[in-house]
């Protein structure tokens, strides 16, 4: 099968133990998970406090949501292909996959900003009701995370450009970003399920 060759070419990281940097980053992600947990709890409490304003059923559009979800999901697998290329030391491929991931992520953030502007324009800004305050806080926290992830992708693309091999340190950085990016996709699963879809029933 195809992965037998992968194992051969991955031989360069023999005796490679997962660095403490990656574990440290994992612990950071767990604290991030707690931030999102508290924001989800807040949203769950305030989700029906409309103060006479619009509810999610009236505000959310399923088409835009599906597109955002698709972009983020595809960006997850493109980053994964980037990691596979990185393990094979194919730097140009890594840069291309990171670039595709960046564009997909940028599309996601763009759609989200467009949605927010539309909502605020309709008078459904974060100051309208407790429901919308909780909604904007939770979803924009996720969006900010994605934006910082985009900055991180760009930084690594610049650092990778022109190098011949991927040193251990760079591999750690790529692995941390991979955890971050896939983690954000997991948070988005909870967002589209409990914030958007559950409001549209």
């Amino acid at each position: 099968m195809a992965h037998d060759t992968t194992i051969q070419t991955a031989g360069h990281d023999e005796h490679h133990h997962e660095s403490p940097v990656v574990f440290g980053f994992w612990v950071y992600l767990m604290t991030d998970c707690i931030i999102f947990g508290t924001l989800f709890a807040t949203f769950a409490v305030l989700r029906n406090q409309f103060n006479g304003g619009p509810n999610g059923h009236q505000l959310f559009e399923i088409g835009g949501l599906a597109l955002e979800t698709a972009l983020l999901l595809i960006s997850s697998i493109t980053y994964g292909f980037g990691m596979i290329a990185a393990h094979k030391n194919e730097i140009n491929k890594v840069i291309v996959w990171l670039g595709i991931t960046f564009l997909l992520g940028l599309g996601f953030v763009g759609l989200e900003v467009k949605e927010f502007i539309g909502l605020i324009h309709e008078g459904a800004g974060p100051d309208r009701s407790a429901f919308l305050s909780a909604f904007f806080t939770l979803v924009s926290t996720h969006g900010l995370h994605v934006s910082f992830g985009l900055l991180w992708i760009l930084t690594l693309m610049v650092q990778l450009a022109g190098t011949k091999t991927i040193p251990e340190r760079m591999m750690s950085k790529l692995t941390c970003l991979s955890l971050f990016w896939h983690f954000l996709d997991i948070v988005w699963i909870c967002v589209f399920t409990y914030v958007y879809l559950a409001s549209m029933i």
């Binding site: 195809a2 992968t6 990281d13 023999e14 490679h16 997962e18 292909f81």
Partner: peptide, 20 residues
């Protein structure tokens, strides 16, 4: 999963596609 000798796993193309 591909597993290196140290037991660290990183995905293969097929595992990413299955997950996707």
């Amino acid at each position: 999963h591909n597993t290196t000798s140290s037991g660290e796993s990183h995905g293969s193309v097929s595992s990413y596609i299955i997950g996707f």
